[in-house]
């Protein structure tokens, strides 16, 4: 495993830790999109189908379990926890996320590495992950006061994909057979969706003002 990949996994993990910190400690999910969280839970469930069938490494298994458990527990907190769910900004989280699922599934049936159940589910999870941030970005635009933890959460989530792209470039030159076009293209699309957010996030950090996205 190269340094970019490890750094990518760690920022991904950090984003989850930041979000759990906000939800578990502050008991608030203000500014967090439940739609995006539900999509992530679906992404991980579809991608890690091979968890108990196909062993890669202890690291891999543990990380997969962490992402599965954290994504489902976040959804549980936002839907069921009696204090946390009251802080959920339902009125502004209106993105029709179900409409993202079917096109991604259709695309996975058409474009996959092999036409098997597991491979189609893997491609589906990659496509869905690329667009899963959209409800969150829309909610951020509608949120007047974006708190620091929410901003950091989205920033780390975006940074994770940037680092993964660097990891793919590195692997392309060091591992002759390593080419996963599906994850590369989807990963680049996913990163581009963050471009706008990154711009405003860095500007707010540089100018030391509160993060706000223009509507």
């Amino acid at each position: 495993m190269n340094a970019f990949r490890l750094a990518g996994d760690m920022t991904h993990l950090l984003s989850v830790v930041v979000l759990l910190l906000k939800i578990h400690t502050i008991k608030s999910c203000a500014g967090i999109s439940l739609k995006t969280q539900e999509l992530y839970a679906l992404v991980f469930a579809a991608r890690y189908l091979d968890l108990f069938i196909h062993f890669i490494s202890l690291y891999n298994t543990v990380m997969k379990l962490v992402f599965l458990a954290s994504s489902f527990s976040i959804v549980w907190y936002m839907r069921r926890h009696k204090i946390v769910r009251r802080t959920y900004d339902k009125d502004h989280d209106t993105f029709r996320h179900h409409f993202l699922v079917l096109p991604c599934l259709a695309l996975a049936l058409l474009i996959n590495e092999r036409f098997t159940f597991r491979e189609v589910m893997w491609a589906f999870s990659i496509y869905l992950e690329a667009v899963a941030i959209l409800p969150q970005l829309v909610l951020l635009q509608r949120t007047r006061n974006i708190d620091n933890l929410t901003g950091q959460y989205v920033f780390f989530l975006g940074a994770y994909r940037v680092l993964y792209i660097l990891n793919w470039i590195y692997r392309y030159f060091t591992e002759p057979h390593f080419v996963h076009w599906i994850s590369w293209v989807a990963g680049i699309v996913q990163t581009l969706l963050y471009a706008d957010f990154f711009y405003y996030y860095i500007m707010s950090w540089k100018n030391n003002v509160k993060l706000e996205l223009p509507a």
């Binding site: 996994d9 991904h12 390593f178 996963h180």
Partner: peptide
């Protein structure tokens, strides 16, 4: 099959 087929990324 190339070994890269094993999807070792998260």
């Amino acid at each position: 099959e190339p070994s890269s087929y094993d999807k070792d990324e998260l």
